[in-house]
Amino acid sequence: MSAPGLVIFDCDGVLVDSEPISMRELTRAINAVDVEMSEREVSTVYAGGTLEAIQRDVSLRRGGPLPSGWIDDFYSARAEAFARELRPVAGARETVEAVQRLGWETCIASQARVVKMEQTLVLTDLADLFPPERVFSATMVRRPKPAPDLFVHAARECGWEPDACIVVEDSVTGVRGARAAGMRVLGYAARNRPEDEAMMLSAAGAQIVRDMREVPGRVAV
C-alpha cells in the first residue's frame, strides 16, 4: 500500500524548542556590537531568516562591517546554550511517530545548516526519526525560504509532487515558502506564544495548530 504523501517538518521551533535560545543569544550578539535591539524585536525581524541575511542586516544597522569572527562567536555561544538547555518541542516525537504510523513519509526542511540540525536532533533524542537522506537544509538550494526552492527540493528528493506534501512550519517565512511551492501548510503557534504570531501565520496561508499533537489529526483529514 503506497503512502498518502509526505509531511515536511521544519526543525527549529517545530521539532526542537531552539528559537527562544537562539533569539536570546542573537540579541546578546547584536547588542554586543552596539546595535540596540530588544529580544522581541530581534525575534520579530529575524525569526525564520538565514544567518547570512541577519549578518548583512546587522551590518547595515551598525553602519559598518561587523568584527571579524562575530558570526563564529555567536555560533559558539548558541551551541553551548543548546548543550545546556535545549529540549524538544512538547509532543514532537509522538507527533512524528503518529504521522508515520498513519503511513505518511516524513522529512525535515530547515533554513539551518545540516551540522546544526545534527546537533539539535541528537540533543533532543529525535535524530533516529529522520535518516540523514531525509534532512534538507537551505544550504542545498539557491534561494532559502521564503522562496519555494527548499520545499520543492525536499519533495523531489523524496519522490513526491508538491500537491502531495503537507508542511509543518512556525514562521511566516516558512509558510510563504511552502505556499509558494504549492503545498498545504500547518502553522504551529504554541498556546504560550503571543496571539499575533498565530494571526500572522494564518494571514500567510497556514492552518493553525496550537499543540503539536494536533498535527496527526489534521494530516489525516
Rank of each mutant, 00 (worst) to 15 (best):
M183T: 06
A109P: 03
V35D: 06
Q55M: 08
E97Q: 15
L121F: 07
G49W: 11
G182N: 00
I30T: 07
W104E: 09
I30N: 10
E52W: 03
G217Q: 10
E39L: 05
S202P: 08
L186N: 04
D10F: 00
D57G: 05
T173K: 08
M1N: 09
Q55E: 14
K116F: 03
S68C: 12
R143I: 04
A180I: 03
L201V: 07
V14A: 04
P162V: 13
I8N: 02
A155R: 03
A198E: 12
Q100R: 14
E214V: 10
E80T: 10
P132K: 03
S68F: 11
G91V: 05
E133Q: 08
I21C: 09
G13Y: 00
V185G: 00
I54F: 08
Q119W: 06
A180N: 02
A147Q: 01
S68E: 15
P162T: 15
G49V: 09
I8Q: 06
R78I: 12
P132H: 00
D125L: 01
R184Q: 03
P148F: 01
P132F: 01
T106Y: 02
V209D: 05
T27G: 13
E41F: 11
S2K: 08
P4M: 04
R93C: 14
E25N: 14
R156Y: 08
V219T: 09
R142K: 02
R191N: 02
D125N: 09
L66N: 10
V35I: 05
